[in-house]
Structures are given as structure tokens and as C-alpha cells.
């Protein structure tokens, strides 16, 4: 059992309404997506450290090896760079690997193959080769994860041409975006969040896709836009509820994909609200917060009634200890406070 299982199990989420459909956890939804993809296409395979162990990558890979065999679902050596290149080489030769990492921190070991090779080869050889692969990792937080087990690296990768990055916030999207990522003909990073793994949600049966590059309005509002992805949406929705109590209508935009970015959904919301708080699970500097902030300034300037606000991590490594962590991570109250400040302009 993963060492932070107790922490994740203690998190409280809103219960979905069972009358709306079948309810799965976020991890079960990913498991179902992988199972469907393996079943539909013999070119799909799943690799990664511990994908066949009893913890089964937070449950996302449970039972897959038993069902699809050791050739298509296999554990790997602790050789992140080589394995990333192996995935790319397999992808270039007709397969569709899903390379799973416990944490994004470990993807950094493979930066050369991901950034300098997989993302660029299609361009470099003038479109003669495609590299359809999925790089999956779950962002950690808490219980001592600290500086080396809780890095959210989406901002670092945002500037890499040729790469796609998706960050689902619901079980429904976790399944639909995983299926889209596997069927995409490019390297796609799927960054989940450890704290979402046991979140319940309505997940349709069977095959469906959530399109890459399209955001969704999670909540309508006229006064301020809260935009983000993944676990930041959980916080954003709670902040919107707090703001509603003050009579402030917050519109929550779930980007779903942060690269390529659905710019129009952000700009359209901004046209309505004129105010934006960008939230992210990663550092504010040079990341999603910075990019969306720049988008607002560059293409939405005419609509802005207040400065852009960012709520993400400070320019500080994640501390391991419990108390320091409470100061480090923003919560719903911080997002709401930020929105209230914008309302005063």
C-alpha cells in the first residue's frame, strides 16, 4: 500500500448523485480506460515501474497484466531515460506505449528522451515518423512527499514544442482524456493528482473520448473567472461556493488540456467577467499561471477590469513537514480571497 494512502483516503469530496449514472473513483476510471485501450488495439501496451505490483500504480493498473499478459503490461528497470527512449522507439515503429510513472519527479530523469527526442522527432524528420505515446504520472502532495516527490512539472514542459499536456480534474475526464491521449499520434503527458485518485464521479460505460485541447465551463458566473486544471479545479469549485455566499459569481473554467491551450474558452469567460484568477498545482513562475496571465494581458486586455491574479506555488521547493506544508499549498480560501481582492478594483 502506498505510504500516503491513509492521507488520500481521509480526503473528503462531494458525493456524486447516483441517479446520474455509474459511479467510479478516479483511479478506477483510469483503469477502465487502460483496459478498454488494451482491448481495442493490440498496438497499445503499458509499461512502468511497478505497474504489475500489488499497489498497481494507485489501482490504475490493477488486473491489467492478468488480463492482457506480461508482454503488454510490464514492469521496467529503474532506467527512466532509456525507458522513455524505448517507448519513443516503439511508438515510432507502430506501437502505442503508455509509460507510467509514480511521480512526475521521475519523468525529469528522462528529460533528454522526452524533450529532445520524442517531442521533436516528428518535426525533425518532416513528418515521416509519428511518436504516439502517453507519459503518465501522478503529482504528489503531503505526508512528507517533499521537494522530490511532489513536483508538478507541467510548467517546465509547457514550452516544449510537439508535446501535449492534459490534466484531468474528474473521473469522467480521467477516462476520456486517457483514451484520447492513447489515440493521439503525438507524445501526450497525462498529469494526474494523487489527491484525486479516490474521488468519486459519474463515469459512462464503454468507449468515449474527451477531446484534447478543449476546456469546459464547470460553473457559470458573471463576476470573476477562476481558471485551472486538475486538483486546482477542486479548490476552485470550493472557492466559488465561498464566493457565492458573498454574492460574487465565480465562473470556473477547467482547462483540461494545458498544451495546446483552449485560449478561446478563457478569453470568452474574460469578456463576461473582466477578472481572472489563474490557479495551478505547480509553481506560479513560468508555468500555467504565467501563461494564462500572459494570455489575458495579450489577447484579453480590453476586457480586464482588474489585474490578473495568480494562485499557485511560491518560488520555493515543497517542504516535507506537515506544518510548513500548510503555509506552502494554497487552498480554496486563498483563491476566494484573491477573487475578492479583484472585485475591489
Amino acid at each position: 500500500m502506498p505510504w500516503d494512502e491513509g492521507l488520500v483516503a481521509s480526503l473528503v469530496y462531494d458525493r456524486p448523485d447516483p441517479s446520474e449514472g455509474r459511479i467510479l473513483t478516479y483511479a478506477q476510471a483510469i483503469n477502465e480506460a487502460l483496459s478498454l485501450a488494451l482491448d481495442r488495439d493490440p498496438a497499445v501496451f503499458v509499461m512502468g515501474q511497478g505497474v504489475d505490483d500489488p499497489s498497481a500504480m494507485f489501482g490504475t493498473t490493477r488486473g491489467l497484466q492478468q488480463r492482457f499478459g506480461t508482454a503488454r503490461v510490464f514492469d521496467t528497470p529503474l532506467s527512466e531515460e532509456s525507458m522513455m527512449g524505448v517507448a519513443a522507439g516503439a511508438a515510432m515503429n507502430g506501437l502505442r506505449p503508455v509509460f507510467m510513472h509514480n511521480r512526475p519527479d521521475f519523468v525529469l530523469l528522462a528529460a533528454n528522451q522526452l524533450i529532445t527526442h520524442a517531442s521533436k522527432l516528428h518535426f525533425m524528420d518532416n513528418g515521416q515518423t509519428t511518436v504516439p505515446m502517453v507519459i503518465w504520472a501522478a503529482i504528489g502532495r503531503g505526508w512528507g512527499s517533499g521537494a522530490q516527490h511532489s513536483q508538478a512539472i507541467q510548467g517546465i514542459l509547457l514550452g516544449v514544442p510537439g508535446l501535449k499536456i492534459v490534466m484531468p480534474s474528474t473521473p469522467h475526464d480521467a477516462k476520456g482524456l486517457m483514451l484520447s491521449a492513447i489515440l493521439d499520434n503525438n507524445p501526450v503527458c497525462v498529469f494526474e493528482h494523487r489527491w484525486l485518485m479516490r474521488k468519486d464521479g459519474v463515469v459512462p460505460d464503454g468507449f468515449y473520448r474527451v477531446p484534447i485541447g478543449k476546456g469546459i465551463v464547470r460553473r457559470q458566473g458573471r463576476d470573476v473567472t477562476i481558471a485551472g486544471a486538475s486538483h486546482a479545479i477542486e479548490l476552485g469549485m470550493r472557492a466559488a461556493t465561498m464566493l457565492a455566499a458573498d454574492g460574487i459569481g465565480a465562473e470556473v473554467i477547467d482547462l483540461r488540456t494545458i498544451k495546446p491551450l483552449d485560449e478561446e474558452i478563457v478569453l470568452e469567460s474574460l469578456r463576461k467577467t473582466g477578472r481572472i484568477v489563474v490557479v495551478d498545482t505547480a509553481w506560479m513562475k513560468g508555468g500555467v499561471c504565467a501563461e494564462i496571465g500572459c494570455l489575458a494581458a495579450e489577447k484579453g486586455f480590453r476586457d480586464l477590469k482588474a489585474p490578473v491574479a495568480r494562485v499557485g506555488l511560491p518560488d520555493i521547493p515543497a517542504p516535507a513537514g506537515f506544518t510548513l506544508e500548510q503555509f506552502y499549498y494554497p487552498d480554496a480560501a486563498r483563491i476566494a480571497a484573491s477573487a475578492r481582492e479583484l472585485m475591489e478594483w
Binding site: 527512449g85 522507439g89 516503439a90 507502430g94 533528454n112 528522451q113 529532445t116
Partner: peptide, 21 residues
């Protein structure tokens, strides 16, 4: 690959694809 060693794992992946297929 213009990065020393860069093509080595990619070629290894190509061999994996040949084996799997």
C-alpha cells in the same frame, strides 16, 4: 540523434516493437 547516446534507447524500442509485432 545528435545527442550522444540519444538513438540507443530509441533503437532498443524499435527492437521491442519488432519483437512484440
Amino acid at each position: 540523434s545528435a545527442v550522444v547516446g540519444g538513438a540507443v534507447p530509441i533503437a532498443t524500442g524499435a527492437a521491442l516493437a519488432a519483437q512484440m509485432k
